[in-house]
Write a protein that binds this DNA or RNA. Structure first.
Lengths: 113, 113
DNA sequence: GATATAAGCAACCAGGAGGTTGCTTATATG
DNA sequence: CATATAAGCAACCTCCTGGTTGCTTATATC
């Protein structure tokens, strides 16, 4: 699945188990379900469901290899989420810069009503 | 509430209504509940609940002023979420750089087993 | 060919999320 | 003082989520 809506992206990241999976995949290497679930206090099916959610949000890529299925992180999705947050920060900066300019302009001309 | 766990942060952002509220607040100005809910196809209480979630995750700051309650975006929380994603990207880059170095090293010394 | 291993499918369950409505309380304003 | 407005509280409902278990299917391996 391709990069989805920002809300689905964040929603998929909004679970500590899935965040752990993402971190585990953050080296760019691909891993099977059992590898990813190793050490986690839940069943293989639960892990598979979490990976389904990540895949549904476009955060991971899925590749079948023999009897195994390998998952790899999709960097573009991570960047998409990061970009959304960047836009928020940018608008903040932009507005504050404009406000500051306005205030300075106002001070030069005298106090505002 | 102060900046919380990354999972709570992303979870709070994982809803299109709340993303809309965050975007609406991204100019840094504070707004009341009614102002924030204006135009949204839901009751005031629903909006208040969403703002509660954002506040619980540390994404907004709450200030009482007379009979109104004003909400403002907390930039540090946005940056915290952005930073987490940045770490993932960075590890990706780091591993790839190391891998590339290893491959080049390997090529100089001959093919790996 | 027999057996072990990886994954898929389906049913089920408890609890939380997102929404509603009705009523109350507190602050502004005519 | 009377009334309008902003917000809080609580109960309720439905649907989704995160987890389970049991069984099946497909691929490796001895």
């Amino acid at each position: 699945m391709s990069a989805a809506e920002p809300a689905s992206l964040f929603s998929a990241l909004g679970d500590s188990t899935r965040l752990g999976l993402v971190r585990r995949l953050s080296d760019g290497r691909e891993r099977s379900i059992v590898q990813l679930g190793d050490g986690l206090p839940m069943s293989r099916q639960a892990v598979a469901k979490h990976l389904d959610v990540l895949h549904g949000a476009g955060l991971v890529h899925r590749r079948r290899s023999g009897r195994e299925v390998h998952y790899a992180l999709r960097r573009d999705a991570i960047e998409a989420a990061r970009h959304w947050l960047g836009e928020v920060s940018a608008q903040w900066d932009g507005t504050l810069a404009r406000l500051k300019a306005m205030v300075e302009e106002g001070n030069r001309q005298g106090p505002l009503p």
